[in-house]
Design a protein around this nucleic acid. Structure first.
Lengths: 136, 136
DNA sequence: TGTAAAATAGTAATGATTCCTATTTTACTC
DNA sequence: GAGTAAAATAGGAATCATTACTATTTTACA
């Protein structure tokens, strides 16, 4: 199946390239709709999947139940804030060492890796947090 | 809310402790039902969530769209086979170094980490794979 | 222009997980 | 051992992200 140009796919990809965070399909949909009011959510999903399958973008599953998408396809880690839910990049030099270490120890073939850190971002650390329910 | 004993929760936890792989809620349900025919799927989900919230077990999100559960709560990596879907443990010494490195570089508070490798396990590497659709 | 393959919009279906409620079980007191 | 309030359960309904379906439109190319 050859891929043909589509204006919608172009707009989706351009939008993703313009963002440093890692939007979900729904966020992409709501933003792209502003200049493309008839685009359907299915089209957004289909094109994000197509782009990810071809390696043009990365699909991230950070454990919040929703897929995030990243136009930066280089190997890097992510940080997920438990406070605000933001997903940000984290460049660690030791990433490649870890991959090498894993390949040394594992008998199968390791193709890629995904590392995600969890905690509170600098912003959320500053704010006072309601912990009234936390000991319930 | 104090936690009271329940036979169902005990059976769910015991089953998880007996497995070296990392079953999904549905797999737990189908197995536990053999000796507890009336248990409901909702009970399995509720107890897995309760145990995970209390730190007795770990919830894994490896990117296949389904949650997996692990009775081993120590920090370790996982490997997900793209062939058979199995999820296995991978102990890497450099894991703690990576966490230290991340804490040094990041301005927020990092609480935990999740690392997952993807590829083909030793078993699936041996088998011939149908790639007829891979260039489509 | 003509045409076949690919893509779209809109909607229905899927499937994992959570929520709801009447009933049962637990833990604790007398 | 009975009485009781909180917690847990079974079973089913609801939710919500994602995928599948289909009639129509767009693309690429002769």
């Amino acid at each position: 199946m050859t891929v043909k140009y589509s204006r919608q796919r172009q707009v989706i990809y351009d939008f993703l390239m313009s963002r440093k965070d890692h939007p979900t399909a729904d966020v992409v949909y709501r933003n792209v709709r502003q200049e493309h009011p008839n685009i359907s959510l299915g089209t957004v999903y289909r094109n994000l999947t197509l782009l990810a399958d071809r390696g043009a973008i990365q699909r991230l599953q950070v454990g919040d139940g929703v897929d995030h998408f990243d136009a930066d396809v280089s190997q890097h880690c992510h940080f997920v804030c438990s406070g605000c839910g933001s997903v940000t990049d984290l460049q660690l030099d030791c990433l490649k060492d870890m991959l090498a270490d894993a390949r040394r120890k594992f008998s199968g073939r390791i193709e890629r890796q995904s590392t995600c850190f969890y905690g509170l971002c600098g912003n959320c650390l500053g704010k006072s947090v309601d912990i009234s329910e936390e000991n319930a």
